[in-house]
Design a protein around this nucleic acid. Sequence first.
DNA 1: TGTTCCACAC
DNA 2: GTGTGGAACA
Lengths: 314, 314
Amino acid sequence: MPEASSRNSINAKYKTRLAIPPHFQQTTPAKITKLSRTPRSLAAFCFQEISFSYTLLEARLEQADLLKKVVDAIKDLVQDCNFDCNDSGVALQAMDNSHVALVSMMLKAESFSPYRCDRNVALGVNLTSLTKVLRAAQNEDILTLKAEDAPDVLNLVFESSASDRLSEYDLKLMDIDQEHLGIPDTEYAATISMPSTEFKRICMDLMALSESVSIEASKDGVKFTCAGDIGNGAVTLRSHSNVDKPDLDVDIELTEPVSLTFSLKYLVNFCKAAGLSKSVKLCLSNEVPLLVEYALAGSSYLRFYLAPKIGDEE
Amino acid sequence: MPEASSRNSINAKYKTRLAIPPHFQQTTPAKITKLSRTPRSLAAFCFQEISFSYTLLEARLEQADLLKKVVDAIKDLVQDCNFDCNDSGVALQAMDNSHVALVSMMLKAESFSPYRCDRNVALGVNLTSLTKVLRAAQNEDILTLKAEDAPDVLNLVFESSASDRLSEYDLKLMDIDQEHLGIPDTEYAATISMPSTEFKRICMDLMALSESVSIEASKDGVKFTCAGDIGNGAVTLRSHSNVDKPDLDVDIELTEPVSLTFSLKYLVNFCKAAGLSKSVKLCLSNEVPLLVEYALAGSSYLRFYLAPKIGDEE
DNA sequence: TGTTCCACAC
DNA sequence: GTGTGGAACA
């Protein structure tokens, strides 16, 4: 039966140890089909009006940078996925191949300068290809995303106000038959906010010793521990607020003590998003996936979920 | 017949599509012969008078850097070629193996601090070997090129005034029976000046999508477009002058609109020369090779010619 | 694969 | 001016 085989396809390293939480089960494996439609020809010469046919989606981002960083942070976890656009914004949700981690991005309409999306549309994108296109944007460029009705391409326009340069790319889309996973709104037993660079540093440091880390939150603080062949490591943080540097605050809210173990490989991967936000929020409850959240401007966010390792291995 | 076979030796990818302009046809294929003469021994110990025999050529370059960068930029296109020296300076002209691209370098006498060349002499050099020798020069070293009458070696002296170090190398020469190609002085339909880094960036960006780029110059601006499997790309520049940053100027001079297609692989290769000059000049006419020129100090230059792809493929 | 250098962004 | 990221070279 296909569900079981999809479970068993998990990366050998994790096969025996990782709990696949039931909230993340897809009912059907994602199907990916290249669109057979031929690509629409490049839009008319620049500096003329480009949208000569009906534009369903038009979303202008002041800093191309933002999308660049978001895609960079998730492209190693997910190869192909839908950008689900509707009038409230652009959402992306996808599990990684091993079904251990889940990415959930929400770019709210208010994060764009003008935002318009007349109808729900799912834009199936290969993230490697998108990365190639986004590399062509200068960080300070203004990025506009456009799609037509029943689109076969995503149109990306980079404007560099400074140097009178205008770049336009059409990225071919694909049909991705992807379930939108319902992620339950969980009340977490522990919620930790800390500087995103500090979380990154801890993950990188412990990665040098071990493949997994235990995160233990108690009223005294939060403790990251790991054990490996060359030695053991432990980093403890206490709640701490810094009046003049609130970026450096560490805040721990706790209803009950929690202790869970996670793969460091995934956490280090999530930390690629550190450039998107000064602070990161970790939410934990026993038996439930860890939530790692980077808040973006305008109540947009980039969230990663990671299934805990079970069996309390060292 | 040898001419035909040399034409057919063109890289399979380009065989059918690339125009080999008649101006670039060599009458005979280049013949390369290693000199059998034994190399002259290293000159007497440093800080003594080095030129103990009659020196035909003596050319002192304030910055070894310049020659280093020039050779770096062409060594992947051309393996062996003559440095043709006469009293007006040092010239190099060679086609790449596929006869699609041509390099033409001119280092005018005035680019050297003292320059002396008593008689025309062709110094046949293997550019890979020259690169190895030039790597021994610090970028700020003063470089002096010397050759004797009927030379079998090119003598390179690096002086680092700062640290009182003096290095001397003798590079073995070879006889290269190479036609000097007459490049007609063309009036181009379009001449575009732009920052060399920007041209490099555009070529690299489009390279991510396709193997070839169309360059389209019109009175509205210049447009670089490409089409590939993952999508299409277009970058448009308009004439633009920047009072305080003239390096960033984009200047387009046009007598008639032009549209030509070129191999990005070669253009990217040319862009290695970007470090030689802040700005680059592109000259285009229909049916004629593109000229990419990097102007150097003292009206010296490094020019690349590239045959257009014909057949207007997408 | 790791290191070094260069260009861009802040 | 400094710091970071990408590309070239060993």
